[in-house]
Design a protein around this nucleic acid. Structure first.
Lengths: 328, 328
DNA sequence: CTTCGCATTGTAAGCGCTTACAATTTATTT
DNA sequence: AAATAAATTGTAAGCGCTTACAATGCGAAG
């Protein structure tokens, strides 16, 4: 089949040990020898067999990004973006990346052990059990975009509180006093954070939020639109609605249009995530931009640190940015 | 470190060969022995080391999904969806899936050889060279959503022509005689297919399409919106615009709104891909639904066939479906 | 010219599994 | 019960690499 180190050894006239060293630790072989080895390798189309190398080294340099979600679409825009960033980073550091959804590996930690995965980046709503299971098997773990109270693992989080603060600040500065929030049932952690932040920040700004101005709905546009209609039909209609993410906000805009309310004149709408849809809507949706790329980079960076036996911060918060557009 | 087959062998009192067989070919060991082995494995938390197994077997069962794109966002909704489907399928058949963008592996086929990847699903605009390079190294290749004239490789394609036909048919049945198309510069293959199909189908339906009713623009909303404005400002304004994908169509809707044209009364709009944004727009966007899941399944199925030494169809076309919504 | 130290290279023993082949046990047949 | 076939298990040789250790070569110092 493929040429092996023996073929290169024979053709170049040096031992296999030298060939091996030429590839994995070039400084250990004399310049002239190295050249001979590489020439022979070139001729034979030899590339080191990563499997055999892993076997001998007792290290695989293999890591995984596990997305834990129950929803239909696992690779949504948000995680796809983090994913891409992790892909890029893992590549730069010569790690082999395996991407998977937790539901796919029926026995995730077993599969990971079997496949000799040395570190895992957990995205989404992984359970505490999953984390500790990995840790107990000596697998490095970093968690992205989720927080498990009492679980000691490095977290990479987006600044949810700060994002909500920017939203409320912005709306308040535009003179809104009656702001509603429409939350959707997606990631419990994220929704919880945004919801609590909303309550706390509005209070801080001296805005009172009545109970009927905070609603919960399912995480699809239509549910959001229906919930938003109720919200906007109240006698004391809110002048601004904050959707817990862009899909929800899009639902709010639909509702507004159905009720013949103008956005932003009659009701301002804000979303969260700054996904691609924001600029496709008319008016364009004001939203909080999450730095997914940075989150991926940090996840990877921390995992690399753990694998190298170094320490890394237990919580890293990535700043967000408010993108003001036509909807406010 | 981790327990090995020797530990299990010792604890269960059988040879390593038997332990190995119990795990990889259970029918070859007596029921009672098998139980002993599994019990010992359980106690030791033993799981077969996939690396060592690959080494001994000379097979890795490793495959890759390579997305070849130049755009900023590699994992867009479309590919993410195919990806998810491939993930699911590969898992069912115990393949190890590596997902990557071609740009990530600086020397893709070398890396693949080094990592002992046995088969590749190529998505997007891969080059003919890439395909033949893989094939010359005995790596099975299947191509999804792209076609390279003269390159012999199994193709899994969506029915672009059929989709466009559904669109034109639909618009014609609604009485539209003056239909425009706005194409964007994304995948050359896809745009080409949709564009040619549009010209050919409109001709078939006896609709004449003037040159200024077919425009090209960049693949983002704003470019599309600007191009669409020109389209809609003509004295002989088209009554329907077909966007080559949903992003373009969203741009058309934005343009319509800017020009105070009502959708669908003044101008009907149709997209392609049936992405999530369709239902977020108001009115909702009529679009052609592509069965990404099926495309992923077929890609995987064909790759599996190739790896098993079986044959598979050289071109498979996946049917599409028109989702009629408020925009027409 | 010998001796020592360092840089370079070679020898060979694994890494954890599979599997051909041999040896043994068990079931079946005469 | 002996003979034969079939099922089960064991022995041991790799798979392609790395790396500890040994061996060699070379220049500098004595």
């Amino acid at each position: 089949m493929n040429p092996t180190i023996y073929d290169v050894s024979r053709l170049s006239g040096v031992s296999t040990a030298t060939v091996s060293r030429a590839f994995s630790d070039p400084d250990k072989v004399r310049e002239s020898t190295r050249r001979k080895v590489f020439e022979a390798a070139e001729v034979l189309h030899y590339y080191p067999n990563a499997i055999a190398r892993a076997m001998a080294r007792q290290r695989t340099d293999k890591i995984a990004f596990l997305i834990c979600k129950k929803d239909a679409t696992i690779l949504d825009e948000f995680y796809a973006s983090i994913c891409e960033s992790i892909m890029k980073e893992s590549n730069r550091s010569d790690y082999q990346l395996v991407i998977s959804t937790a539901s796919d590996w029926n026995q995730t930690p077993n599969t990971a052990q079997s496949r000799q995965i040395e570190g895992v980046i957990l995205g989404g709503s992984a359970s505490a059990d999953l984390v500790t299971e990995f840790q107990s098997r000596n697998t490095a773990v970093v968690m992205v975009n989720n927080r498990l109270p009492g679980v000691d693992v490095p977290y990479v989080l987006s600044d949810e509180y700060g994002g909500v603060r920017l939203v409320v600040e912005h709306l308040a500065s535009r003179g809104h006093k009656n702001i509603a929030m429409l939350a959707g049932r997606f990631s419990p952690y994220i929704v919880g954070e945004r919801y609590n932040a909303f309550l706390s920040v509005t209070k801080e700004f001296g805005l009172k939020v009545s109970a009927q101005n905070v609603k919960m709905c399912d995480a699809d546009v239509e549910s959001a639109a229906q919930a938003a209609e109720e919200l906007l039909r109240q006698k004391n209609r809110p002048t601004a609605v904050f959707g817990a993410n862009d899909v929800i906000a899009a639902g709010v805009m639909k509702a507004a249009r159905r009720l013949k309310l103008r956005v932003p004149e009659d009701v301002a709408v804000v979303g969260f995530d700054d996904s691609a849809v924001c600029t496709m809507l008319e008016p364009e949706l004001t939203s909080v931009h999450i730095n997914c790329q940075r989150m991926g980079e940090l996840g990877m960076e921390h995992l690399r640190a753990l694998l190298a036996g170094e320490t890394c911060p237990s919580v890293t918060v990535v700043p967000v940015e408010l993108k003001v557009r036509g909807s406010t």
